Simulated assay, not measured.
Amino acid sequence: MNWRHVYHLGLKELSGLFQETVLVVLIVYSFTLDIYTTAKAQPETLNAAPIAVVDEDRSQASTMIVSAFYPPYFVAPRLIDAAEMDARMDAGLDTFSLVIPAGFQADLLAGKTPDIQLNVDATRMTQAFTGSSYVQQIVTSEVTEFLNHTRTASSSPVEIVIRSRFNPTLDAGWFGSIQSVILSITMLSIILTGAALIREREHGTVEHLLVMPVRPIEIMLAKIWAMAAVVLVGAAVAILVVVQLLLGVPIIGSVWLFLAGTLLMLFASTCMGIFLATMAGSMPQFGLLLMLVLLPLQVLSGGMTPAENMPAAVRFVMQFTPNPHFVSLSQAVLFRGAGLAEVWPQLVAMAVITVALFALALGRFRSFLR
Rank of each mutant, 00 (worst) to 15 (best):
I252R: 15
S282Y: 12
R163D: 00
P157Y: 06
T169R: 15
S15A: 12
L11C: 12
P311C: 03
C271V: 07
K40D: 13
D55E: 02
S154G: 15
L362S: 02
M265G: 04
L23E: 13
V214H: 11
F358E: 00
A313L: 12
G261A: 05
Q285R: 14
M350D: 01
E218V: 02
H203R: 15
I51H: 06
L9R: 09
V6I: 09
A228L: 04
M125E: 09
P311K: 01
N148C: 07
P216N: 00
A313T: 12
M279Y: 09
V25M: 04
L263A: 15
N323C: 04
L11G: 11
Q298R: 06
F175P: 01
L247G: 05
V24F: 11
F69W: 01
V22Y: 13
T270I: 07
L340T: 14
L288D: 13
P306T: 12
R88L: 14
V161H: 13
L263S: 13
P43S: 01
T262V: 11
K223Y: 07
S189Y: 01
L276G: 14
I239L: 15
V355A: 07
V299N: 10
I224C: 08
Q285C: 11
L197E: 08
F335D: 03
N2C: 12
F286H: 14
L266K: 00
P324W: 00
I100T: 06
M187C: 06
G194S: 06
T123V: 05
I182E: 02
A236T: 11
V327H: 01
Q285T: 08
F175L: 04
G194W: 01
A91P: 02
M64T: 04
A313I: 14
A49F: 09
L300A: 12
L288T: 12
F275P: 04
